[in-house]
Design a protein around this nucleic acid. Structure first.
Lengths: 191, 191
DNA sequence: GTTATAAACTAATTAGATTAGTTTGTCAAT
DNA sequence: ATTGACAAACTAATCTAATTAGTTTATAAC
């Protein structure tokens, strides 16, 4: 029977990512991924070493798509405008791919250089955008950490449903948060 | 055999929380919780309806402890000082209880009034602290959402290991972030 | 003391991950 | 064109975990 050579790791990751977005990150199994691909679950072991590698693969996929989205948002813009564009793209990505977005969080643990590398991609774009401000390296790092934390915190609390109780416009809350941080930057420059 | 009446839901949650902190939130099972309590896993079903209720229980526990920690941090302080105290206590809690902290995120989904209630506890303290600023209700909500998002985002990226690559002091990054937000508040008042 | 019941138990089913060992296409060298 | 090696699929089996059904037993109320 065995129809040969149908699969590779990338195909598996794509199928898994799609399944994750449909059924939730927690609810995917090798069994279901294999089903979706028309093979038996042990066959997947020819291309990956168990379910943890599946998680890593999904996380890499998620990060590289996020990186792409925010890179696009930054081109042709600078300083505050670029940061605002990145913030908007970041939240848009998280809203459109909530399960993939969650996958990003649970992965720097994996001590895989390749993965570490991917994890820094988002930050590297922010460093580039920060260049025109001429901050010191340390000051840049501090700001970028905070900025990214704010974006991540907001979108993940939003997705988790923490902002549902109150009526105030969530877009407005996000804009205000991002504005506060960007303003704190320009204020410093002008002082 | 059956030794009777040893358990209740609270005892189970406490054991589960302890186990979660030891072995990781993902790695706890009813089997292990039951073992730790000296019973068989089906016995747990007399006190809860499956593994999801265990998650809910752990989450409630985690939130109520967090609420307690930040409430203590706020007493006797006001405005910026109170917000800074809360920020410090928030991060301290997350660092000391990383697994419990993670549990908080995956729970507002559960449509349980009791849980929703607990989820708002942290925010309610922030509303109280904001009162002296005399912001409108909507403005208060916007700020509180952003503030909380920043705290959450920072501690969860930190715990996930996203700040490991660079050498800059992480405490300093956090202080700067919180300062930026608090300053943006007082600036507004003074304008 | 008897009895009802809650709380424990055992046994069995299901889903999932993983390993071992087997089969079968495909490709490359003859 | 044939064949032999290997990669990639397979089946079978094991293990862990959740969950359900049905049974037993301690205790509290009478």
């Amino acid at each position: 029977m065995g129809a040969k050579r149908g699969l590779d790791a990338q195909t598996i990751m794509n199928a898994a990512a799609e399944l994750a977005e449909q059924k939730g990150l927690e609810n995917i199994s090798l069994l279901q991924v294999a089903d979706k691909l028309g093979v038996k679950s042990p066959s997947l072991y020819n291309h990956l070493n168990g379910v943890q590698e599946l998680s890593i693969g999904i996380a890499k996929l998620a990060v590289s798509r996020l990186e792409n989205a925010i890179r696009c948002a930054a081109v042709g813009r600078s300083k505050g405008e670029a940061l605002m564009g990145i913030a908007t793209a970041y939240r848009k990505y998280a809203k459109e791919n909530p399960e993939l977005y969650k996958a990003i969080l649970r992965f720097p643990d994996y001590k895989d250089d390749n993965v570490q590398e991917a994890g820094h991609a988002v930050v590297r774009i922010l460093y580039q955008v920060m260049e025109p401000y001429h901050y010191s390296e340390k000051e840049t790092i501090h700001f970028v950490r905070g900025f990214r934390a704010a974006l991540h915190g907001f979108v993940s609390l939003e997705e988790a449903g923490f902002f549902r109780g109150t009526s105030a416009d969530v877009n407005e809350s996000y804009d205000q948060l991002v504005d506060r941080l960007i303003s704190s930057l320009t204020d410093r420059r002008e002082s």
